[in-house]
């Protein structure tokens, strides 16, 4: 029988969302329409329209060693062209952001190729070849994995994920890369991910309401959301793994 991944335990909407986002067969709902140029501007690695700088000659032009693994693995477009490795980094608010750092790394590993995710408590960075990155970043920003108020594209000075929101419902950002246009109910990026001012604003869509966020979040939250202790199945599995690990430490003889 072929292996069928289950992605994770849990009987709540939060667990369901986690499974959905990790499952590459699930098509993520499209929420906004940022163009390629917008994504390039937000990341700030190159000017829109500029050629991709390279780290090495294209694979077709350089002598590849006779390696069975290289024959087996198809290079991504970026690797084929010899692109530089670049990054995008996200901060996800604990107040019901659609996804969170650990899950980002999991879902990217399931969905994307040739990536190097780095997971921290409040932020998650993913590195890969530049043209692959732009493709992946577009999917991460344009779909339900992103909310313009509770998720931030922040390459540096990421502080804010565990702070209270401000009165407008926006996550704290010392550099205020994105501002809420109250009249249009639209979040606009005015700086790129490291805090350099943009030549033109990038519209990141309207902030979602609490109801939408709570239905799409992957974060257990005992204040106002789904508490982890209420997820009987998830809890049972974590306790089971904990018990087995502990017993294994004592080398049980069965």
């Amino acid at each position: 029988m072929a292996y069928k991944p289950q992605f994770g335990p849990g009987s709540t909407v939060v667990a369901d969302n986690r499974r959905k986002y990790m499952n590459p067969a699930y098509k993520l709902e499209k929420m906004r329409d940022l163009s390629d140029e917008d994504i390039v501007l937000l990341m700030g690695h190159r000017a829109p329209g500029a050629a991709y700088p390279t780290a090495h000659p294209p694979l077709a032009e350089q002598q590849e060693p006779d390696c069975p693994v290289r024959k087996m693995v198809t290079p991504t477009d970026g690797a084929k062209a010899g692109d530089r490795v670049r990054y995008i980094q996200f901060t996800d608010s604990m107040f019901f952001a659609p996804t969170h750092p650990y899950l980002r790394s999991y879902l990217e590993s399931y969905r994307f190729r040739g990536i190097d995710p780095g997971t921290l408590s409040g932020r998650q960075i993913v590195e890969c070849r530049e043209r692959d990155l732009e493709k992946y970043a577009k999917e991460l920003v344009n779909t339900e994995l992103f909310d313009s108020a509770r998720t931030g594209i922040r390459g540096a000075t990421v502080h804010g994920h565990s702070l209270r929101l401000d009165e407008n419902g926006m996550m704290f950002d010392m550099l205020q890369r994105f501002v809420l246009d109250k009249k249009a109910n639209m979040v606009k990026y005015v700086k790129n991910q490291i805090g350099e001012p943009l030549d033109k604003e990038v519209k990141a869509g309207k902030p979602q309401d609490e109801k939408w966020l709570k239905a799409h979040t992957t974060i257990y939250h005992s204040l106002g959301g789904v508490a982890w202790r209420d997820d009987a199945e998830g809890l049972e599995w974590v306790q089971r793994i904990h018990a087995l690990r502990t017993k294994y430490g004592f080398m049980p003889e069965e």
Binding site: G155, A156, D166, M174
Partner: peptide, 21 residues
Amino acid sequence: PRLPAVIPYGPARGIENPHVM
């Protein structure tokens, strides 16, 4: 949390930091 007038560290260090708050 502090809102500095100039970005104090990171790749954009030294750039002005307008902030509505």
